[in-house]
Nucleic acid binder design. Structure first.
Length: 110
DNA sequence: GAGATGACGGGCT
DNA sequence: AAGCCCGCCATCT
């Protein structure tokens, strides 16, 4: 049985190029809607050269989460911009335009 | 096994 | 709008 970390990595790998998702969304898809922090912990354990597109995971505010020393976050921003992601004047990403919430988003309302 | 930590999120002030 | 607080989960000490 795959561990929580493996679940997270598998899901992040499904995020398409040019799109982003949030820690909360990943946690939800992993079956732990209340463990976004654990998702961050899982990504923290990754190496920069990992095959997991960790840069496509941002917080619910549409911004890259600050971490460690500094510069790491800007590195993530560059990687995203290189994929076509656009940041606004407030360093935020429009989740309605670039956000990805899974293979099949909101079906529609009843 | 108890306490502390963190790439979070939502609610309230 | 910005900040503060509290709850949550997997790990690490």
């Amino acid at each position: 049985m795959p561990t929580f970390f493996d679940e997270v990595y598998a899901l992040v790998r499904q995020v398409p190029v040019g799109r982003v998702t949030t820690y909360g969304a990943i946690a939800c898809m992993a079956g732990r809607p209340n463990a976004p922090r654990a998702v961050g912990y899982a990504l923290r354990a990754l190496q920069a050269d990992s095959d997991v597109p960790w840069q496509r995971v941002i917080n619910a505010q549409g911004k890259v989460s600050p971490r460690g020393p500094d510069g790491e976050a800007s590195f993530q921003r560059v990687r995203l911009e290189r994929e076509g992601i656009v940041f606004d004047a407030q360093d935020r990403i429009n989740l309605r335009a670039f956000g990805w919430v899974g293979p099949m988003p909101a079906p529609e309302l009843p």
